[in-house]
């Protein structure tokens, strides 16, 4: 891969956002990452309307029977190279719905996931940090995480996720 390709992929990240049965909490935080205070556009991040234009699939919510097929189709519609980011505790492993009979237990049971961003919901800084990590960019500056948020983030990590009950 040439240096130009590497550079352009690092600097231009077009994101398609899928809400797979989320409570809208994470979606609001993703929206906040695009607003003047955080402004993801300065890093080259753009929210696009069509999966055909996207490089990164941003998935929130605990994927259930209704959204499972939609999520798969959206993933298959994206052109290569594509990356998937799971945002929020529900997307990681079920979150507060963990163990329920009617929800899935994590996006990675449906489509391959490249990066998990924990939190319920994760802060906009965390989402930006995650996206930068994803493209191999070492984020500069200090990442401010308060104690409360750190605790929240610890609610579900990958190690803690157990196999879903009844499957």
């Amino acid at each position: 891969m040439s240096a130009l390709t590497k550079w352009s992929r690092k600097r231009s990240i077009w994101v398609f956002h899928v809400n797979a049965a989320s409570c809208n909490g994470c979606d609001i935080e993703i929206l906040a990452a695009l607003t003047p205070r955080y402004d993801a556009e300065r890093l080259g991040v753009q929210l696009v309307g069509s999966p055909r234009h996207a490089d990164v699939l941003l998935v929130t919510g605990t994927v259930n029977g209704m959204t499972k097929d939609v999520l798969k189709r959206v993933y298959e519609q994206m052109p290569e190279p594509k990356l998937v980011v799971a945002v929020g505790a529900c997307a990681l492993g079920g979150g507060v719905m963990k163990g329920c009979y009617n929800v899935g237990h994590g996006i990675d049971k449906v489509i391959p996931v490249n990066l998990f961003i924990p939190g319920c919901p994760p802060r906009p800084e965390a989402i930006l940090y995650g996206i930068l990590k994803l493209v191999g960019e070492e984020p500069k500056g200090k990442v401010v995480v308060s104690d409360k948020v750190e605790k929240q983030s610890d609610v579900v990590t990958r190690e803690e996720v157990e196999p879903p009950v009844g499957q």
Partner: peptide, 19 residues
């Protein structure tokens, strides 16, 4: 607005195009 790609992000459209 675009900031990271090039000085003041002036290379942002170029990055988008090549990507």
């Amino acid at each position: 607005g675009p900031l990271v790609a090039g000085p003041h992000g002036i290379l942002q459209p170029v990055a988008d195009f090549f990507k």
